[in-house]
Write a protein that binds this DNA or RNA. Structure first.
Length: 555
RNA sequence: GCGCCCGUAGCUCAGUGGAUAGAGCGCCGGACUACGAAUCCGUAGGCCGCAAGUUCGAAUCUUGCCGGGCGCACCA
């Protein structure tokens, strides 16, 4: 609808210029908005306000010149009027909104698909937690966000892959190995203290017990630390990573590539990145360390890439890693990070800029913490003691659908309250059930229609003119908004727009359903309303699919 | 001290420079003898943290304050 009207407006504007009623100017982007006040029509345009100044005319005069040449815009306009300071308000023929219904039913799951990405390759990296312990709820939020971002970008035309970066090269792996060995020796009765700053979670005891149970591995305990620690670390890391893969799988999160930091180091990628930076004069030595000139690209201080003791920093391998992503042909990178890493953003962008990859090609989405509640009361979690609620526990308790949807009900930068009791409820309090219930209602109507022998309409030829109620036109308008909403969510990397939209659509349908009957009306009315209900069901299903949430037939 | 994020109804939060700022929860009061009441309808509730500025127009952009969170490593 907006597209149609935009075309007509541009044509009318051009005509006005040819006629000499308006000066020759390149027109601004046409912005059509939904006014809040019904008396202001269904769409409004500020074109005349924008043109008034460059044309040196008063806005209402500009509007008049355009309107005179717009006519009824090919039959879609009921009336158009100039209002306020110079808004043009459009009253659309109610029936014109209904044209989207057969389109939705014809396109089905593809309704809303776009070609914004034009096949450009995009890589979405998320979670990327160290394989030193199971994923917790915070990781779950990042996982839901990253997974849906990947789905959204794919839907609007990018070639998308998802990736998990495994931090398996740093000294935290050695810490993991030592943690396992100490726990194993304790089980053997060594009576030693558990060292500070090691992984003291309960899962380490379980791992240690499993480790000891394997005779071939138990021999490692007698080896000197230099040999034992890497072996123990590798074993524990693999074990924990497998658990992470299982947990993400149960959470309907698909990861295309598991990318090992160690592999990057081993193939010399970090050295290669150093060489490139050095060639550009962006590295220098000072105080025994090697520094990157981050200040040359907007960071507030220069950053160490190789320490005085010869070890590379995490930052160094991250430069190599992101360079590798670009080298693999991805023109758009999306990283999902915990918000506590936000101070790290400028330096990575600086490094990429220094290597000729514009900062805007590296999109970093920051995700805030999750406050876990049960019945309104905070659930105690202590990372220090290694006691946290895992993603698996949450998914097991409330289900993947509920957890995913609720994780996406807030902007990622805003902290999220996640109440386990609410997430389990089957009521209005729980937005995912509210939306899924709307979908099952559509399915239920169809089932009933089948039982009652009511024929299903052919969307292509059905007569929709019986749809005259304001609620019906409003539903059609809302359905027509879906493609634009999806595009906006993808462009701005904001999946929460989808959850909000679905909640609104579900609400509009629930309300309609409660006050009007779809079946058992005059046959032409029933036919038309079935088309509307089918379209609502299709869009609800499409939106839920984008979120990786099921659209059940019955609940 | 410096930087980033946030400040919108009692609570949790939407709101890509537009007209009289929205939703859910909570409170109170209503609606099933036809498609699922896991729903719906109604009432009440606001100096959009404060103050300047930008312009036809600001919750939105700029600056300065106030308040909260998080960062400020040769950790990851």
């Amino acid at each position: 609808m907006k597209d149609k009207l935009t075309q007509r407006l541009l044509a009318a504007l051009a005509q006005a210029q040819t006629d000499g009623a308006l000066p020759q100017l390149t027109p601004p982007a046409i912005v059509l908005e939904r006014p809040r006040q019904p008396e202001h029509g269904e769409l409004a345009c500020n074109l005349a306000l924008q043109l008034a100044k460059p044309c040196r005319m008063n806005p209402r005069g500009v509007a008049q010149a355009i309107l005179e040449r717009l006519g009824d815009a090919g039959g879609i306009l009921q009336k158009a009027e100039i209002a306020g300071p110079g808004f043009i308000n459009f009253h659309i023929q109610p029936g014109a909104w209904l044209a989207v219904l057969p389109q939705i039913l014809q396109e089905g799951p593809d309704y809303g698909r776009a070609s914004l990405g034009a096949g450009k390759k995009a890589l979405v990296e998320f979670v990327s937690a160290n394989p030193t312990g199971p994923l917790h709820v915070g990781h779950g939020r990042g996982a839901a966000l990253g997974d849906v971002l990947a789905r959204l970008l794919r839907f609007v035309g990018y070639e998308v892959h998802s990736e998990y970066y495994i931090n398996d090269a740093g000294n935290q792996m050695a810490t993991l190995g030592r943690s396992l060995l100490v726990r194993a020796r304790q089980l053997g009765g060594s009576g030693e203290e558990f060292p500070d700053n090691h992984y003291r979670g309960e899962y380490m005891r379980d791992l240690a017990a499993e480790y000891l149970a394997m005779p071939s591995q138990a021999a490692v305990l007698d080896m000197p630390p230099d040999l034992a620690v890497p072996l123990a670390a590798a074993w524990a890391g693999d074990k924990i990573l497998q658990g992470i893969k299982d947990d993400l799988g149960a959470f309907a999160v698909g990861i295309d590539t598991w990318f090992s930091e160690r592999s990057l180091v081993e193939k010399g990628a970090v050295q290669a990145a150093f060489d490139e930076l050095r060639d550009r004069g962006l590295l220098y030595e000072s105080e025994g360390a090697l520094w990157f000139k981050a200040t040359a690209f907007g960071d507030e201080k220069d950053r160490v890439v190789k320490r005085g003791n010869g070890e590379i920093t995490y930052f160094a391998s991250d430069i190599a890693y992101h360079l590798d992503k670009f080298r693999r042909g991805y023109g758009m990178l999306v990283d999902v990070w915990g918000a506590d890493h936000h101070g790290y953003v400028p330096r990575l962008k600086a490094a990429m800029s220094g290597l000729d990859h514009p900062a805007q090609d590296l999109n970093i989405v920051l995700v805030q913490m999750v406050n876990l509640l049960r019945g309104g009361q905070p659930v105690a979690m202590s990372t220090r003691a290694g006691e946290f609620v895992t993603l698996k526990e949450v998914v097991d308790e409330v289900g993947s659908d509920s957890a995913r949807f609720i994780f996406l009900t807030r902007r990622s930068e805003a902290p999220l309250d996640f109440d386990l009791e609410v997430a389990k409820q089957k009521s209005m309090d729980n937005p995912v059930f509210y939306v899924q219930y709307a979908h099952t209602r559509v399915k239920s109507v169809l089932k009933k229609a089948g039982e009652a022998g009511v024929p299903l309409p052919d969307p292509a030829s059905a007569n929709l003119s019986p749809l005259v109620l304001p609620e019906e036109i409003a539903l059609a308008r809302l359905l027509g908004d879906y493609p634009e909403m999806v595009l906006g969510a993808a462009q701005n990397l904001e999946p929460h727009r989808v959850t909000y939209y679905l909640h609104e659509l579900a609400g509009a349908f629930h309300s309609y359903y409660n006050s009007h009957h779809i079946l058992f009306e005059d046959p032409p009315v029933t036919t038309a309303r079935l088309v509307l209900a089918l379209a609502v069901g299709a869009v609800l299903a499409g939106g839920l699919t984008l979120l990786g949430v099921s659209a059940p037939e019955a609940m």
